[in-house]
Nucleic acid binder design. Structure first.
Ligand code: ZN
Ligand code: ZN
Ligand code: ZN
Ligand code: ZN
Lengths: 173, 173
DNA sequence: AGTGAAATGTTATACAGTAACAGATGAGCG
DNA sequence: CGCTCATCTGTTACTGTATAACATTTCACT
């Protein structure tokens, strides 16, 4: 609630130098607020997994998350990670990156659950960081075309694989 | 080489009633022609996997393909299926559906390898059939936006999950 | 305090994908 | 023809991703 204008057309932070502490704090606050408002239970396990995802802008596999949970002294089995991730994804606090079988925290946790916004993801194959942007009217037009063919659209995945600015500058590329 | 006009703006066949025998024969002919032209070896294993994929418009997991290979008396191990699928995907004769970890035959095997066309997939969660259409200018505009942010785009995935006309008509929906 | 729904802990297993190496096959060549 | 290199195939064993199922705990609400 501290940001009056939540950066409507700003470039996504993941590939930019930014105040990541603020970035994390604000995302966590948004999620806490949304949970309070919608009567969702942000339990310790879920909060911890959210923190793990927020920690970097990299996509983490469920087993990466699990490893970090264990590193925190929490003797967890796979379902622990999957259940927390399912909760976060179902409520729009995280997204699944299909191309990587991995997860990232949502960059706009304010905008309501799941279907509410139509994200597109830029996935860097160099550093595995993922920036979220809006698929916007482009995705809408593909979806409209599908509907014209009698197809009932439920979810749309747009994932762009490539190389982020930082990784283009690095030697390995 | 028998179709002068390869249905430029026609609705995708997967969800339509169509002459599937013709559909299979024409796809196979295109692939054979492309292989001859580009000096690719369409070996028996690869041809058989292509046939398996062409057989239905459903997305098949690598292990589904494997099972069908085995059903044909071919005592195959997983790498057999993966290698054939990799060949087909690398040369644009099949596509990987990220959302399902599965594969479908390409609907336009004429149009050259891999990056040549920008497909979008409609995935029915009822029957697992997948129809391929062109992502067209929509995907291009998202990709342009990404490039404007300094991101070097390599591949774009557009997958639309929903319910096909047939499955909408069925009771279970 | 009592009750039902939701969340967690735990075991075991299913499904997806690959590394590595040995053997077969096939096109090109002297 | 018979060599040779590259590609394709066969096979073992393994890593990684995801879920079923059931016992137990926690929590909101009476
Ligand atoms: Zn950040
Ligand atoms: Zn990068
Ligand atoms: Zn067909
Ligand atoms: Zn269907």
């Amino acid at each position: 609630m501290s940001d009056p204008a939540p950066d409507p057309a700003a470039p996504p932070a993941a590939f930019q130098r930014h105040d990541h502490g603020r970035c994390v704090a604000s995302a966590r606050a948004s999620v806490e607020a949304a949970c309070a408002e919608r009567g969702l239970r942000l339990t310790p396990a879920r909060a911890r997994v959210l923190e793990i995802l927020l920690d970097s802008h990299e996509a983490l596999g469920a087993y990466d998350v699990l490893e970090r949970l264990r590193a925190g002294g929490h003797a967890a089995q796979p379902p622990v990670a999957y259940r927390a991730l399912d909760f976060l994804v179902a409520n729009g606090f995280a997204h699944r990156i299909e191309k990587l079988n991995a997860f990232v925290a949502c960059a706009h946790p304010d905008e309501g659950a799941e279907t509410a916004h139509a994200p597109a993801f830029m996935i860097c194959r160099g550093c595995r960081r993922v920036a979220e942007t809006s698929a916007g009217p482009a995705a809408a037009s593909v979806a409209d075309a599908a509907r014209d063919l009698g197809f009932e659209v439920e979810r749309t995945v747009v994932e762009i694989e490539g190389v982020c600015p930082d990784c283009q500058a690095r030697p390995s590329e």
